[in-house]
Amino acid sequence: GSKLPPGWEKRMSRSSGRVYYFNHITNASQWERPSG
Rank of each mutant, 00 (worst) to 15 (best):
Y21I: 00
Y20F: 09
G1K: 10
K3I: 12
E9C: 06
I25E: 09
R14H: 15
S13L: 12
G7L: 02
W31L: 08
R18A: 05
F22M: 02
K3M: 12
L4Y: 04
A28L: 13
S35L: 11
F22H: 07
R33D: 08
S35N: 11
R14D: 13
V19I: 13
S16E: 10
R33N: 09
R18G: 04
E9H: 09
L4V: 03
N23D: 03
W8Y: 02
N27G: 15
W31N: 07
F22Y: 14
W8E: 00
P34N: 01
H24Q: 09
Y20H: 03
S13E: 14
S29F: 15
W8V: 01
S16W: 08
Q30M: 05
S35G: 14
V19P: 07
L4C: 01
Y21M: 00
S35D: 13
S2K: 10
S35H: 11
L4G: 03
W31Q: 05
S16I: 05
S29L: 14
S13R: 04
G7N: 07
F22R: 03
W8P: 01
S35W: 10
P5Q: 03
M12E: 09
G7H: 09
G7K: 02
T26L: 06
N23Q: 02
K3R: 12
Y20D: 01
E32N: 10
S35K: 10
M12P: 06
S16H: 11
K10A: 11
Q30P: 00
V19R: 04
Y20V: 02
P5S: 04
L4H: 02
F22I: 06
G36N: 11
I25N: 08
L4T: 02
K3H: 11
K10T: 09
S13H: 15
R33Y: 13
A28G: 06
P34V: 01
R11A: 03
S16D: 10
F22D: 00
S29I: 15
P34I: 01
G1T: 11
Q30S: 08
W8Q: 00
T26P: 00
R11W: 03
R33C: 05
E32T: 09
Y21V: 00
S13T: 11
T26S: 08
N27E: 07
P6E: 10
R33L: 11
H24V: 15
L4N: 02
Q30D: 02
G36E: 13
K3S: 14
K10F: 06
S35V: 13
N23H: 04
M12L: 15
V19G: 02
N23R: 01
K10G: 04
N23K: 01
A28S: 12
W8H: 01
N27P: 00
L4F: 03
V19E: 09
H24P: 08
Y20I: 02
G36K: 09
G36R: 10
Y21K: 01
P5I: 02
E9R: 06
R18Q: 07
S35Q: 12
R33P: 12
P5L: 04
S15T: 14
E9Y: 05
P5N: 03
W31F: 10
V19N: 04
S2D: 15
A28W: 12
P5H: 04
R14G: 14
I25A: 08
P5K: 02
K10I: 14
G7S: 04
N27K: 15
N23V: 01
K3W: 12
H24E: 06
G7M: 05
S2R: 09
R33M: 10
P34H: 01
K10V: 12
E32Y: 08
E9D: 03
R33S: 07
E32D: 11
M12W: 15
E32G: 08
K10M: 13
S16V: 06
R11I: 06
S15N: 13
Y21N: 00
N23M: 02
